[in-house]
Design a protein around this nucleic acid. Structure first.
Lengths: 333, 333
DNA sequence: CTGAAAGCGCTTACAG
DNA sequence: CTGAAAGCGCTTACAG
C-alpha cells in the first residue's frame, strides 16, 4: 500500500504538504493540492487510520455497548435493528464508524476498550443493569450517550422517549373509549421506561379522577410470558379491569393471549394498549393499539449529541433528547 | 494515560521487555514478568491499540458489512440480532472487535475502509445486491466470510443454511399430511436462499412423483406484502393448491392473511409451511409450521471461519459451512 | 533472558 | 504556502 512518503515523493513535495492536503486543504496552494489529490487517486493512496489515531488521539470511531448478555441471558431489544440503522447512518455521515464493544473480551471491561482504542465517544443501549464499567466511563469525561436511561457525567447525556406522556395518552384514549376500570402491566421498576410509563399511567388516572387501585398494577418483564402471567393475575381480580395499558408490545401480545384463553374478547371485554409499536403490532389480529416510539430517532439523536460533544470538547453536554411518542389506534381498543 | 515507556521506567526494564511481557510472556524471566504485570495493573497501563496496529498491521478488528441500505431502502434481515450476538460473542472470545462499516462514509467504499483500518477480516451479510466493492474485497485476499451468499476469493468462504434440504423437508411434510397440490411462494431468484429453496421444492416434487405445474410457483420478495400478493395469485388458479411452501416466514404470514381474506381456512383448506422460524412464527395463531434456521450458528460459524483464516495466512479457506435446518411443526399444517 | 535502535505512517508546531 | 524534524506508543529483528 502506498504511504504518504511515497505519495509525497511522486508529487515532489514534503509529507507535511500531503498531510495538509487531506487535513487542512485550504492552506495549500490550489495547484499543488490538485496535483496531490490526482496522483493520490491514481496510485490509490489511502491514509492509514492507525497512524492518524496515534498522532492525533482521535480514532473516528464510536463504541457501542450493547448486550451484556452473559449477565442477562436472552435479553433483547425490541427494535435494535432500527436503532443500529439510525446510528450507523447518522454517524457515518459525519465520518465515524461504530465499534461494537465486546463484553467478554480480554480487555476486561468497556472503559478499558475505550481507552485502548482512543474511542471518540460511546453509546450505551440500556439493558437494565448497573454496570460499574459504564458508570466509570460516563464519569471519565469521554462523550457518552445512553439510550433509554439517564446518566450523569461531565460529557454524558441520554435519549429517551416521552414515556410518561405516551402512557398518559394511552390511558386517556382508553378513557375516551368509555373504559373506567383501567389496569396496567408495568415494566421492571428498575428501568427508566418501566418506571416512567407507570408514573404516566398514574398521572392519567389522577387527571381523569379515576381511583388508583392497588391490584391494578401488575409488574411484567417486557417479555411475552411476563405479560401473559401478569394479565392472568389481573383477570382473577374481583373487579376485573375492562382495559389495560401494557408498557410494552410483547407483553401486550402475551396479555391478549391470556384474555383470549380466559374466554374473553379483545377489545369487547378487555381493551388493550401497548407501547413500542414493534413490527408485530400491526401484524397480529386484531391489530394492537399502541404508543409508537420514534425508533430511528434514537439513533439519529444519539449520533447528533455525540458529535456535538466530540466537536466541542469545551461545551456542556447537550440536554437529554426526549423523543415524542404517537398513539397508533388499531383493533384492540 | 501511562505509556509503555513509563511502565518500563517504573519497573527498571526496557520497553522491549515490557512489550514481551504482553506479547510473548513465556520468553521473559518469571520474576520480571510478574513485576511488570503487577505494576501495570497498579498504574493502570493499557497497551495502545493504534500503536500496536501501526507496528504489526493487525488491528484485531473485523469489519461487518451490512445494509447497503441507500440502495435497497428498508431492507431488513429477519434475524439480524441473533446473528450479531453470535458473531460478537464468538469473535470477542478470540480477541476481536466488530467494526460496523458505514456505507455512506467519506471513504467511499468498504474495501477502502478495510485497508485504512488494517482490518483483519470482514463478514458480509447479504442484501441481495452485487456490490463491486465487495467483490474487490473478496478478490483482494483479505479473509472474508459471507452470510447467505457464496463468494469466491483466495481467502473467502461463506456460511449458508441447507436451504434445499429444508425446502425438501417442508414439501415432504406437506405430502405426509396428505396434500398433493403443493405450490410454493419463492424468494427472489437472485438471492441464494431464494434460488436454493425453490430448487429444493422442485426436487421434492420430483422425488414424490408430483407434477411440477408452472402456475404453482409464485415469486415473492421475502416481505409480508409480497407473500400476500403471491398467495392471491395462487388462490385464483383453477386448480387451487391445498398446500404452499413459502420461502420465508414473513411472506408466509402474508400468505396466511390472503387465505383468510379469501374466506378459506388454514390449515384445513390450505396448509402453509414457512422458512426461518422467526420469533413471530410461534406467536401467530395458529402457530406457523416452518423450517428453522440455526440463527446463532451463522455468527459462530462465520467467526470460526474468519479466525481460522486470520490465524493461518497460508491455509486454504475453510469449506463453506452449511447449517442444518429443522422442521418445526405447529398449527398451519 | 534483555536492551538499544529502527521502524510502523501519520500530524503539527516551528521556521522560513 | 512549504519543509525539516520531533513525536505519537508500540514491536521486532539484531546483538549480546
Amino acid at each position: 500500500m502506498a504511504t504518504i512518503r511515497e505519495l509525497a515523493r511522486q508529487c515532489g513535495v514534503s509529507v507535511a504538504t500531503v498531510s495538509r492536503v487531506f487535513n487542512n486543504p485550504e492552506v495549500v496552494n490550489p495547484d499543488t493540492r490538485k496535483n496531490v489529490l490526482d496522483t493520490a487517486a491514481r496510485i490509490g493512496y489511502l491514509p492509514n487510520e492507525s497512524a492518524r489515531t496515534l498522532a492525533t488521539k482521535k480514532s473516528h470511531m464510536v463504541g457501542l455497548v450493547w448486550d451484556t448478555h452473559h449477565r442477562r441471558p436472552g435479553w433483547r431489544h425490541p427494535f435494535l435493528q432500527e436503532i443500529l440503522i439510525g446510528l450507523k447512518t447518522a454517524l457515518s455521515d459525519r465520518g465515524y464508524h461504530l465499534l461494537m464493544l465486546a463484553t467478554s473480551d480480554g480487555e476486561g471491561s468497556h472503559d478499558r476498550a475505550v481507552r485502548r482504542h482512543d474511542l471518540d465517544g460511546v453509546v450505551f443501549i440500556d439493558d437494565g443493569t448497573e454496570d460499574p464499567a459504564l458508570l466509570r466511563l460516563a464519569a471519565s469525561g469521554v462523550p457518552c450517550v445512553s439510550l433509554d436511561r439517564p446518566v450523569t457525567g461531565p460529557r454524558a447525556t441520554h435519549v429517551i422517549s416521552d414515556n410518561a406522556g405516551g402512557a398518559r395518552a394511552a390511558v386517556h384514549h382508553l378513557h375516551g373509549r368509555g373504559r373506567r376500570a383501567i389496569a396496567t402491566i408495568a415494566g421492571p421498576g428498575r428501568t427508566a421506561p418501566g418506571a416512567e410509563r407507570l408514573a404516566g399511567y398514574r398521572a392519567a388516572l389522577a387527571e381523569l379522577g379515576l381511583p388508583a387501585r392497588d391490584g391494578y398494577v401488575a409488574e411484567g418483564d417486557f417479555y411475552l410470558a411476563g405479560g401473559h402471567a401478569a394479565m392472568r393475575r389481573l383477570l382473577e381480580l374481583d373487579e376485573r379491569p375492562d382495559a389495560v395499558f401494557v408498557a410494552g408490545d410483547e407483553m401486550a401480545i402475551g396479555a391478549i393471549r391470556a384474555v383470549t384463553e380466559a374466554g374473553l374478547k379483545v377489545p369487547e371485554d378487555v381493551a388493550v394498549v401497548g407501547f413500542d409499536d414493534i413490527e408485530l403490532a400491526a401484524l397480529v389480529q386484531p391489530g394492537l393499539t399502541t404508543v409508537a416510539q420514534d425508533k430511528a430517532g434514537f439513533g439519529t439523536a444519539a449520533a447528533a449529541a455525540l458529535v456535538a460533544m466530540i466537536d466541542d470538547p469545551a461545551a456542556a453536554p447537550p440536554p437529554p433528547s426526549v423523543l415524542p411518542t404517537t398513539l397508533v389506534v388499531r383493533g384492540t381498543t
